[in-house]
Design a protein around this nucleic acid. Structure first.
Lengths: 155, 155
DNA sequence: GGTGAAAACCGTAGGCT
DNA sequence: AGCCTACGGTTTTCACC
């Protein structure tokens, strides 16, 4: 194995990924022009990377504040018992406003990202939906004042 | 104002968003069929939401572990002085492996998400690129063992 | 593995209701 | 504001190299 990654992607694959990172809707023919190959090749390569599971899809980026969701916060959870991690994350999953959940090492067992309309909405979700989940010892809130970067790794 | 959000989106707009949340590359004609309107209408609505800044674009979702980046971690930063927040985040922005940066309230001033090949890569970045930034007092690492959810809010 | 062209499909603009 | 039509561009496939 000589490539930089597990799946022996060649330079062309990486170049395609790099272009799609900047704009995931770049037409294949435009990518083809930039890479000096035919559109068919881009199609085959992209499909291959999708089948490999490298490209999982695309996510719509929206300005949640314009939808009335002004608060973005991270919440760290300490569990009474580590073994309840799976149960608690399954319960968190049911809450629509939670858009990212991670099991983590360190001071907390679970870290999640939540989007709320305002502080009282956050308060209500914490009190009535989150802190009522069995096995949670405590929650620590980190409200995002500003998201400065949201991008893909540049390979 | 009677809608659920600041920008008076109607049911059709919300339905379009909802479909795009599930798959941001759904063809307009397919959305049109699901919403029982013409493709042109979907085009106009989508363009309107882009112009309003509600739809900011799309982000390619990739399996970073398949690209050889096995470690995903959150890092909380305590600053010597709150006022250096902007400077520090600008410096962090220059590091490719950092894909998300937030200014936050709470125990930390800055929280960022970083993708690394392995633990030694993370160690190297922390020691040589991150902890050398002026104004950082301490860093706390939370390694993600499992990302369970990554989605948009379901309106 | 790549090419180039054909066919099917989609995005976009313009006119009409 | 939505519908329909038409055009230009894109995706996808496939025979050929």
């Amino acid at each position: 194995m000589e490539g930089p990654c597990k799946y022996q992607l060649d330079d062309l694959d990486l170049q395609i990924l790099s272009i799609l990172f900047n704009d995931s809707r770049t037409p294949f023919l435009e990518i083809a022009r930039q890479c000096h190959v035919s559109g068919g090749t881009i199609h085959v390569r992209t499909k291959k990377m999708e089948e490999m599971g490298i490209i999982k899809g695309t996510k719509l980026l929206i300005d949640t504040s314009k939808l009335g969701y002004d608060i973005c916060a991270f919440v760290g959870i300490k569990l009474v018992n580590c073994s309840s991690c799976e149960y608690v994350s399954e319960e968190l999953k049911k809450i629509n406003e939670i858009i990212e959940i991670h099991c983590i090492t360190g001071d907390f067992s679970i870290l999640f990202k939540i989007i709320c309309k305002d502080i009282s909405h956050l308060h209500e979700l914490l009190t009535n939906k989150i802190q009522t989940i069995k096995g949670i010892q405590s929650t620590s809130i980190f409200i995002s004042l500003d998201q400065i970067v949201d991008r893909n790794i540049n390979i």
